[in-house]
């Protein structure tokens, strides 16, 4: 998980932001409760969104209660309390994805970083074992994602779509899992819900993967690493437009899939994420490519 799925606070109402913050703080608390106080450090916006997606469709609305933050006792926070497994699922996804990310980092990173990561591994492994016991499907999906990613990256005929598929499939499976574990409002048909959440998860996963790839493009190009945008033969001038179109397409599909769902209690916040925040994030990344092209253009003019 990469932390790209967050809200655009400037375009949220006060009560909407409080509701979102309440889920964020409640997930932090759940991580502490289910795993360890140190597991709270792996709290991410992506998993908060996953928890919100689950709470959006539960039969009973979460109850917001005030409490004190564990890390800052002077600060009062709202916590979204729920009987459903929404937060427990999101906490499990957090620790499982953090464990596999750490494992991946131990293979990919330079030696000095590996020295830092190595001592963390036993703790992450312990949390992951506990989460996998309760939710083996999440563990299987994340593990499969890493295996498939390695296979896709080593395939000489790999294309952008193939490279993005493992992350997309993982999030699709994890999102489609929600109706199996939580009791959904009777307005929702379970089979349809699974299909819609699965499709939405697929394209959100694709968007996250491609956004991260666009963000890392320069770094990967410099060190000759794998990047899906390096696979195509698009020229440097056309690259920003190509990246923007690819990200727009994934986000549009996620939005169109979500649009088929009857409105839940967090609809306005989810729409804020899809229609505002994600757009702002990708605009920021794409504009860095435009800036670079402009600079190159200026340098070329000067040299002439």
């Amino acid at each position: 998980m990469f932390g790209y799925i967050r809200v655009d606070r400037a375009n949220l109402l006060g009560k909407e932001f409080d509701a979102y913050k309440g889920i964020y703080c409640a997930l932090c608390k759940q991580l502490g409760k289910d795993y360890s106080v140190f597991s709270r450090f792996i709290l991410s916006y992506d998993c908060t969104f996953y928890a919100m997606l689950a709470l959006n469709i539960t039969t009973v609305a979460p109850c917001y209660k005030q409490g004190r933050c564990r890390f800052n006792p002077f600060k009062k926070c709202l916590y979204a309390e729920t009987e459903s497994k929404a937060l427990s699922l999101a906490a499990a996804l957090s620790v499982i994805s953090a464990y596999y990310k750490l494992k991946d980092n131990l293979i990919d990173s330079p030696w000095y970083k590996r020295l830092l990561y190595r001592p963390l591994q036993p703790f992450f492994a312990l949390w992951r074992r506990k989460a996998a016991k309760n939710y083996p499907e999440i563990d299987a999906s994340v593990k499969k994602m890493l295996d498939d990613q390695l296979k896709a990256e080593s395939d000489p005929h790999c294309v952008l779509d193939k490279a993005a598929q493992p992350t997309a499939d993982m999030l699709s499976e994890v999102c489609a899992l929600l109706p199996d574990h939580i009791s959904c409002d009777e307005r929702f048909d379970k089979i349809k819900l699974k299909r819609i959440l699965g499709a939405m998860g697929y394209y959100m996963g694709r968007w996250i993967y491609l956004t991260d790839a666009a963000d890392d493009y320069e770094k990967d190009k410099k060190r000759n690493g794998f990047n899906p945008f390096l696979l195509s033969d698009v020229s440097a001038e056309q690259l920003p437009a190509y990246i923007e179109a690819s990200l727009n397409h994934a986000l549009s599909e996620a939005l169109l899939s979500y649009g088929l769902l009857d409105k839940g209690r967090y609809d306005s916040i989810i729409m804020n994420v899809l229609c505002r925040s994600c757009v702002n994030i990708q605009n920021e990344i794409v504009s860095s490519f435009h800036n670079k092209n402009d600079k190159n253009g200026e340098l070329n003019e000067k040299s002439i």
Partner: peptide, 14 residues
């Protein structure tokens, strides 16, 4: 969809 112009949705970034 590649332009993020989805009919019926307000998808302008503002």
């Amino acid at each position: 969809r590649r332009a993020y112009a989805n009919p019926g949705y307000n998808t302008n970034s503002g």
